[in-house]
């Protein structure tokens, strides 16, 4: 229970509370409007979506745009979806493990070279990815990982950002907990796995979502690494119907929904988990 709840009188509604909820609701509509917009636009016919003056809701809602995309033999949506899922899940699991473990070591261990290592990590965040793209590509060629889904997972197994985040959280965990673990004769890895990891549920969930989303939405890199059409990931759909040679806005909107929907659904499911975690563990 958060302390503020004690201040709310049952059945009593304060002015401040009304103002607060008004702000929250305005924010809510601004946040959701683009989602609603893309959804309703995707149900419009190609003619209606460009009609001036525009209407917000479609006059004759149709699923034709979706049917067109799913029937397009050039875009095997199910295959793209499976590829995206595989890469995203793989990267999330690996990143959560490496980030929490390395974050723990940076937060709670002293060893020579620590600052240097941390510096290298920070530099990884600071260097623009576009610039290391070519050398990275050359390295993947040497590892023979070009045109494989591993080429999308392997370069992202260590996430400097994730390590940084975990270190911040682990620094907030009292040292006594670790000392107590050592007293009980737990090995260093056991302390990490049994004492630290359970404390990290909420930040791990956040990092997991963040990684999943970054992977799911990754656009530039997969288009370069993957050359076989059947190995491509879902975001390819986004620009498939929109390029300099002719764009079809209704199909683009439907393609956006197809790309967005899975991650939004997964997010909704996952979010409940986080909320429950925060409530039961106190997340202090």
């Amino acid at each position: 229970m958060s302390p503020s709840t004690t201040r709310i009188v049952p059945f009593g509604i304060s002015l401040g509370m009304i103002a607060r909820y008004a702000v929250l609701l305005i924010g809510l509509s601004v946040t959701l409007l683009p989602f609603v917009y893309v959804l309703v636009s995707s149900l419009k016919t190609p003619a209606e979506i460009i009609r001036v003056p525009p209407s917000f809701f479609p006059k004759d809602a149709t699923l034709q745009n979706y049917l067109t995309i799913f029937a397009d033999p050039r875009v095997p949506v199910a295959t793209f979806f499976a590829n995206s899922t595989l890469v995203a899940v793989g990267r999330v699991l690996i990143t959560l493990f490496t980030s929490s473990l390395a974050g723990y070591i940076f937060a709670r261990y002293e060893f020579s070279g620590k600052n240097l290592m941390f510096g290298v990590l920070m530099a990884q965040i600071m260097i623009p990815f576009q610039m290391i793209m070519i050398p990275l590509y050359l390295i993947l060629v040497q590892l023979q990982l070009i045109d494989t889904l591993w080429g999308l997972i392997l370069p992202a197994m260590i996430d400097a950002f994730g390590i940084f985040l975990m270190r911040q959280f682990i620094e907030g965990i009292p040292r006594e907990l670790i000392d107590a673990g050592r007293m009980d004769g737990a090995s260093e890895f056991q302390i990490y796995a049994r004492l630290i990891l359970p404390q990290l549920r909420a930040p791990l969930a956040s990092l997991g979502i963040f990684t999943f989303m970054a992977t799911w939405n990754d656009y530039l890199w997969p288009l370069i690494v993957i050359t076989t059409h059947e190995k491509r990931t879902l975001p390819l759909l986004l620009t498939w119907y929109s390029n300099a040679h002719g764009s079809r806005p209704a199909l683009t909107m439907a393609a956006s929904v197809i790309v967005l929907l899975p991650i939004v659904l997964i997010y909704i499911l996952f979010q409940r988990q986080i909320v429950a975690n925060a409530a039961t563990t106190g997340f202090k």
Binding site: V38, M213, N217, Y219, L238, S256, V264
Partner: peptide
Amino acid sequence: PTVTSAVA
């Protein structure tokens, strides 16, 4: 919105 693709 943060979970959505920047391209989208």
